[in-house]
Write a protein that binds this DNA or RNA. Structure first.
Length: 481
RNA sequence: CGGGAUGUAGCGCAGCCUGGUAGCGCACCUGCUUGGGGUGCAGGUGGUCCCGGGUUCAAAUCCCGGCAUCCCGACCA
């Protein structure tokens, strides 16, 4: 009997964080493993989360002036190879197609690991005049990167993402665009996912292959490791050079546009899961939850199968739906209420609504919050109104709590010993001075596993280098996912 | 790509040492029971024992080869 119970439970977070994560994504019905290593199957419940994220992100991308298009999956080898740093960065993780229609291809085709090559080469045909600029295009696509180690959502061989690719007349405009999208990502992450992030610039060793400058948002996971959740690159004129994008500018001179690219992926779902889950499973913020409320009908003491409660429950469901709340009524009669509670908690539904004979008698119902199990009794007539407010509260509370956790896990250190101590202990974000030397960065990674996640924006805050004691500036370290 | 482990029902495993009818729990199906925090009882369905070869009257079990997966170290949104 003990054994039975254990088989239904998940590994406690504190005991083994990564096992907890795997248990949750599988048991919460988010993903399944497929026949190809590293290529997960996103199940309907997990995909519904992605759809909510996608819809909102798409809106934000359009509101900042961009339009959607779609470019091919296959990239000819020669095209990919035109930008030197880019190809060096990506070819080790490319999947190649060498046979088509039963015959060896004259030129191998890369399955896109990212689309700069194919998009920029297309832009070369499209841009002739300064009047053609800016080009502000986004695409929703899948990409493939043959990573050695994979984990559902966090690092998968194939993943879904959006990638924006833009061209601008001036460096300043490109930089402005790069930062604009970084801000879109920051806002999205905090407003939709309730996942607080730090943002800033990447060091040379961490920047995108072929970029001039890379910026990123970084979230902190429950095990004290950082997750890069979105990137925005100022590509300079590298790709215009490589792919021959040229136009006549306002002075009738030949000019090369400045380009940017930026992306967020299904990886954010992994961050979402790790930001809010607990030992009972997933906790989803209301804005991305497939179901914001689940109604669990409580059967009468004795008698028929829920017929005493279901009509009222269906009525309530229709009422909540009409109010724009995503609500699910759990009519399964092979499970008892207790089982259903645990089941929906595992799936992270923000609010459970219990409706039983006692409630119907009093013309009320019971609302229970997923994150803290706080219970309240509300009149049936006022349920929709109360729920709308409650969902907003939960969304905000999740963000506030996550912020508090990040704050508690951020340490400002002044000595390397202290640095090592924090890394050995609780990890998290470490703010420390750095002299700008890549060798120091490499040494710290070697010795502590921490890398420089971000160089904060704005004027440098002076701080002596944590390793050498030389003059330096404050940067943010963490062990990365 | 180095070091360690594991492949037996959808999942988690036992059996292997010492060869002889393929088992247990969960899940699933049927019936009754129960029902406001994972009900209980009874009956039942489901197998290429990873693949290939060898030894043997006989292989999940012993031997050889392969493949796959997982964990730990170098690369990565």
């Amino acid at each position: 009997m003990e054994q039975d119970r254990v088989s239904k439970e998940i590994t406690p977070k504190a005991k083994d964080y990564s096992q907890w994560y795997l248990d949750v994504v599988l048991k919460a019905d988010m993903v399944d493993y497929g026949p190809v290593r590293g290529c997960m199957i996103i199940k309907p419940y997990g995909y519904a989360v992605w759809e909510h994220m996608q819809r909102d992100m798409d809106r934000r991308i359009k509101e900042t002036g961009h339009v959607n298009a779609y470019f091919p999956l296959f990239i000819p080898k020669s095209l990919l190879e035109r930008e030197k740093e880019h190809v060096e960065g990506f070819s080790p993780e490319c999947a190649w197609v060498t046979i088509g229609g039963g015959a060896e291809l004259e030129e191998p085709l890369a399955v896109r690991p990212t689309s700069e090559a194919i998009i920029c080469s297309t832009y070369a045909k499209w841009v002739r005049s300064w009047r053609d600029l800016p080009v502000l295009i986004n695409q929703w696509a899948n990409v493939v990167r043959w990573e050695k180690v994979t984990r559902p959502f966090l690092r998968t061989t194939e993943f879904l993402w959006q990638e924006g690719h833009t061209l601008h007349e001036t460096e300043a405009e490109a930089e402005e665009e790069t930062l604009r999208m970084l801000e879109v990502y920051r806002a999205f992450s905090e407003e939709m996912l309730a996942m607080p992030v730090l943002y800033g610039r990447k060091t040379e060793s961490e920047k995108f292959a072929g970029a001039l400058r890379t910026y990123a948002i970084e979230a902190l996971m429950g095990d004290g490791r950082a997750l890069q959740a979105g990137t925005s690159h100022n590509l300079g004129q590298h790709f215009s050079d490589a792919y021959g994008i040229e136009y006549l500018d306002r002075q009738q001179q030949r000019a090369k546009p400045w380009s940017t690219s930026w992306g967020t992926s299904t990886r954010m779902i992994g961050g979402l899961i790790m930001s809010h889950g607990d030992d009972s499973g997933l906790i989803l913020p209301p804005k991305v939850a497939p179901y914001q409320v689940v109604i669990v009908p409580i059967p009468p003491k004795k008698g028929d199968v829920q017929e005493a409660v279901l009509p009222k429950a269906r009525e309530l469901q229709a009422m909540l739906r009409a109010a724009g709340i995503r609500v699910h009524l759990d009519e399964r009669d092979q499970f008892q209420p207790g089982y259903k509670y645990a089941d929906w908690e595992m799936r992270g539904v923000p609010v459970r609504l219990e409706l039983g004979p006692k409630d119907i008698e009093k013309d009320s119902c019971v609302l229970v919050r997923r994150e803290n199990r706080a219970k309240e009794f509300v009149p049936l007539a006022g349920t929709a109104t109360r729920l709308a407010a409650l969902l907003d509260t939960i969304q905000q509370d999740l963000l506030d709590e996550a912020r508090a956790r990040v704050k508690a896990s951020t340490t400002r250190v002044s000595s390397y010993d202290e640095f090592k101590q924090v890394m050995a202990d609780k990890r998290g974000f470490i703010v420390a001075g750095w002299n700008g030397d890549p060798k120091v960065e490499a040494r710290i990674k070697e010795e502590t596993k921490a890398t420089i996640r971000l160089i904060p924006m704005g004027d440098p805050v002076e701080a002596p280098c944590v390793v050498t004691g030389e003059k330096g500036r404050e940067v943010v370290f963490a062990q990365a996912y």
